[in-house]
Design a protein around this nucleic acid. Structure first.
Lengths: 127, 127
DNA sequence: CAGCTAACTAACCAAGTGGTGAAATAGTCG
DNA sequence: CGACTATTTCACCACTTGGTTAGTTAGCTG
């Protein structure tokens, strides 16, 4: 399983997102994390295992407690992936704007839905 | 199912992330999307349904084609959620730095592990 | 109309998920 | 040691997921 797979999988559950949000403001033990939820401890334990496997959290050992700690890196990686897609998406629309400006300058040669119009038809030297 | 649940679930699969990345640079038909994958068309169709249910993509009808289009809003929402957690995480460490500066100025009164040290001790006017 | 293509639905399967209660493990305290 | 607390593992359950093949629907085109 890929790292991003694991991260997004971990974030796909509301209980786990709540745990991540809680850990963002400070480390906590399993019991502390379980308190807000109407769920048994083994249930929480499973969620924590998913979070740990994804790298989103790490767990230390302090006496019989196992405090959980949020790791920043996987969160960053997930955000970077989304940002990259958004960047491409946005760039495309910038180019579309540019193209529309061109079309407005020479409107005769193109029309909506012309399927055979290859993208490079601009250089047909009709000037 | 919550909207963020659906978005992160959709992004948790590598095939679906590849589809999203592909659609970021332009709309495409189901066959075009399926081409890069060693998977049957119904398989792709299922993935597209997951993406559509999450709102990440929408589908139009043009003749017998059903071109897919990437929607920006769910991507934004997912990123905002991550950003918010990161913000809280970061703020906490800024406060920790601040606290450590305070401790260096008046090292006698606090020691590691003192759990009762409230975060607002800055206003003690010891300069 | 028949035939072709794009895409979907239906039925099925193996594997995974999210939850439970009961029992086990690890560490502290009297 | 024995009791208590924090946490995990185990065995089980219903349900979902990701994939398949086979068949179906929708729309173009000769």
């Amino acid at each position: 399983m890929d790292r991003l797979d694991a991260t997004f999988t971990a974030l796909a559950d509301p209980t786990r997102r709540a745990i991540v949000a809680r850990l963002a403001s400070g480390d906590a033990t399993v019991n502390e994390l379980a308190a807000p939820f109407a769920m048994t401890l083994p249930g929480i334990s499973k969620h924590l295992k998913v979070l740990e496997r994804s790298g989103l959290i790490s767990r230390a050992r302090r006496a019989q407690f196992r405090p959980c700690h949020l790791e920043r890196e996987p969160l960053d990686a997930a955000m970077s992936w989304i940002e990259e897609s958004r960047r491409i998406w946005t760039e495309r629309f910038d180019k579309l704007d540019e193209h529309l400006r061109d079309v407005q300058q020479a409107p005769a040669s193109v029309q909506y839905g012309a399927r055979r119009a290859a993208p490079g038809t601009r250089g047909q030297a009709n000037d």
